[in-house]
């Protein structure tokens, strides 16, 4: 996707977001203060966001729709989506399985994703993931007394 086309898409997204925020700002209670209410700044910012979205879209419009920019190689979006999924799974599973297990699993999977296919030393990555997760847990949970979820390891 060319940069100009992205500007049109992001501009439209800001426009839509601004419109939703503007509509939602009317449900904000005015609050107790005098003069401007709690909805004043959100309303002002949503208007600015709509205007900004229009300006960004306009920047990309002339060449964006008629001529997509060539250039720029396409990235590995599969890896991006998998990275988001791994982090999402880490967040969801953290309270249930605890820090050590979820952190070790995340480090293992993310490192495998970063390593090229022919160069994946699973045993080494597994050891790094386990040692790193345990070391971080010991330093912060035991050393600095941070309350990290212990999960099923209790």
């Amino acid at each position: 996707m060319g940069q100009k086309y992205r500007e049109v898409v992001s501009g439209c997204a800001f426009l839509l977001l601004g419109a939703i925020m503007f509509a939602a700002s009317f449900s904000i209670p005015k609050g107790a203060e005098m003069g401007v209410g709690a909805g004043f700044m959100p309303r002002l910012m949503s208007i600015l966001l709509v205007l900004g979205g229009l300006a960004v879209a306009a920047q990309g419009w002339p060449s964006g729709v008629t001529r997509l920019e060539a250039g720029g190689r396409s990235g590995n979006y599969r890896a991006v989506i998998l990275s988001i999924a791994y982090l999402g799974a880490f967040v969801v599973l953290l309270p249930k399985f605890g820090f050590v297990i979820t952190a070790a699993a995340y480090i293992f999977l993310q490192t495998i994703l970063f390593c090229p296919r022919g160069n994946r030393d699973y045993r080494r990555i597994g050891i790094v993931a386990a040692v790193a997760a345990v070391a971080i847990y010991l330093v912060f949970a035991k050393g600095f007394k941070l309350l990290l979820p212990a999960g099923i390891l209790g």
């Binding site: 800001f14 977001l17 925020m21 939602a24 700002s25 904000i28 209670p29 005015k30 609050g31 107790a32 203060e33 209410g37 709690a38 909805g39 700044m41 959100p42 910012m45 949503s46 600015l48 966001l49 900004g52 979205g53 300006a55 960004v56 920047q59």
Partner: peptide, 27 residues
């Protein structure tokens, strides 16, 4: 334009939660 839109986005994000002074909940 992109810089100023970035500022507005940051301002919008910070408006989530209790409003300053009145404490009214937003977004």
């Amino acid at each position: 334009v992109k810089g100023l839109v970035g500022c507005v986005l940051g301002l919008c994000l910070a408006q989530v939660g209790a409003a300053p002074v009145s404490g009214a909940l937003r977004y």
